[in-house]
Simulated assay, not measured.
Amino acid sequence: MKGTYLGEFQEIVLLTILVLDENAYGVSIQEEIEKRTRREVSRGALHTALTRLDEKGFINSEFGGATAERGGRRKRFYQVTNLGKSSLNEAKAVRDDLWNSVPKIALQKIQG
């Protein structure tokens, strides 16, 4: 499982790429994560996660066309691979199993 293990942030990045679909590029991924988690995300942390996900074969990317608003620079768009989707499904299954195994009383607030 070592090579396919997903950390929490990597899982969030993969899910965000799926949510954004064809509009998944660096800034849009960063903004969506910040909006949904209400946590600040540094570009460095996101870049590191994207690099590691690419190395694992969980994502691939391609450049879009250059735009004047970006000074002629192109955006790199990301997609989740089938391997990435499989890894997400495995992570979800483990979490679901654990959540379903927690006794309901364990999650109740203590009155006092």
Rank of each mutant, 00 (worst) to 15 (best):
V19N: 12
V41T: 06
F9I: 00
Y78P: 06
Q30P: 12
T37Y: 10
E22S: 12
K92Q: 14
E40V: 14
G7A: 03
I12Q: 05
G71L: 01
Y5E: 04
N89D: 09
N89A: 11
V19C: 14
L46G: 10
T16W: 14
Q79I: 06
F58S: 01
G57E: 03
T37L: 15
L107N: 13
A106F: 07
L46W: 10
E34S: 08
L14R: 01
R73V: 00
Q111R: 00
S28M: 11
I59C: 08
F63R: 05
L50Y: 08
G112H: 02
S101E: 15
Y25L: 14
S86P: 04
S61W: 14
L20S: 08
L83G: 07
R95P: 10
G26K: 00
H47S: 14
S87P: 13
I59D: 02
P103H: 07
R74N: 02
S101A: 15
E90T: 05
N23M: 14
L107R: 06
L18S: 09
K85A: 11
I110Q: 04
V13T: 00
D96C: 11
T48K: 06
E34M: 14
E8W: 12
N23I: 08
Q10Y: 03
A93L: 09
V80K: 00
S61G: 09
R39I: 10
G64C: 06
S28T: 15
G44F: 13
L46I: 08
R95T: 15
E8D: 10
I17A: 04
L46P: 12
I29G: 01
G72V: 03
E62C: 04
R39M: 13
S86Y: 07
L6Y: 07
F77Q: 01
I17W: 11
R76K: 15
I59V: 13
R74S: 07
A68T: 11
E90I: 04
R39F: 15
R38A: 09
Y78L: 04
R43A: 13
V27Q: 02
I29R: 00
V19S: 13
P103L: 04
G26Y: 14
L14P: 04
I110G: 01
I33Q: 01
M1L: 10
T37E: 12
Q108Y: 07
G57L: 05
A45I: 06
V94P: 08
T16G: 09
A68K: 11
E69I: 00
